[in-house]
């Protein structure tokens, strides 16, 4: 079944939608979630959360504004990242009696957006292969070993490339921000 058909089922609120979504795009969601969460139970819970979120949010998905894969992976990644952060916070809370994170202030949020734009602009100046490597590492949280194996490279080669990418970004961001 093509992506178009799954989207149609979801948008028309067909009950088969989540089932087909899980059948056809479950592997992709799992693929994105796995590097963030070592515990298989957490992964399955996050996968179910993702399916629910996609079912709820499908109205917001606009094919003209972005690709289906990008949208799906963004949902999966954010859900997995949130779960991983929550797990870390829980562990930290267990060790200390500190108050929870109150979240970013409006000023901090504005600053983050500004930084995000600067980073995006710097990434645009990289080669496509470098961007893919960067996103695998930082966005999809993949280990060097996974990247190396999937791209058919040696781990040291991946580390070397990532180091060079970081150096390039450092230079680009320094020039922009200092």
């Amino acid at each position: 079944m093509a992506a178009q058909e799954v989207i149609k089922l979801l948008k028309t609120r067909d009950e088969k939608g989540p089932e087909e979504l899980l059948k056809h795009f479950g592997p992709l969601l799992r693929y994105v979630i796995t590097p963030f969460l070592p515990d298989p139970r957490d992964r399955e819970e996050v996968l179910q959360d993702c399916i629910l979120k996609i079912w709820q949010e499908i109205g917001r998905f606009d094919e003209e504004k972005g690709s289906w894969t990008s949208w799906l992976t963004a949902i999966a990644r954010n859900a997995a990242l949130s779960r991983a952060r929550a797990e870390k916070r829980r562990e930290a809370d267990a060790l200390s009696e500190e108050e929870g994170d109150p979240g970013p202030t409006p000023e901090e949020e504005a600053l983050r957006k500004e930084r995000q734009q600067a980073l995006l602009a710097a990434l645009d100046l990289l080669k496509k292969s470098e961007r893919i490597l960067f996103y695998r590492k930082y966005y999809y949280n993949q280990s060097t070993a996974q990247i190396a194996a999937e791209l058919g490279m040696g781990e040291r080669a991946v580390e070397g490339k990532l180091y060079r990418i970081r150096q390039k970004l450092k230079d680009l961001l320094k020039g922009e921000m200092s």
Binding site: S70, W71, N78, R131, I132, Y139
Partner: peptide, 13 residues
């Protein structure tokens, strides 16, 4: 901390 919410299709695909 400053990664975008979504990535371009050329990356996700």
């Amino acid at each position: 901390a400053n990664l975008p919410e979504k990535v371009a299709p050329e990356i996700s695909e």
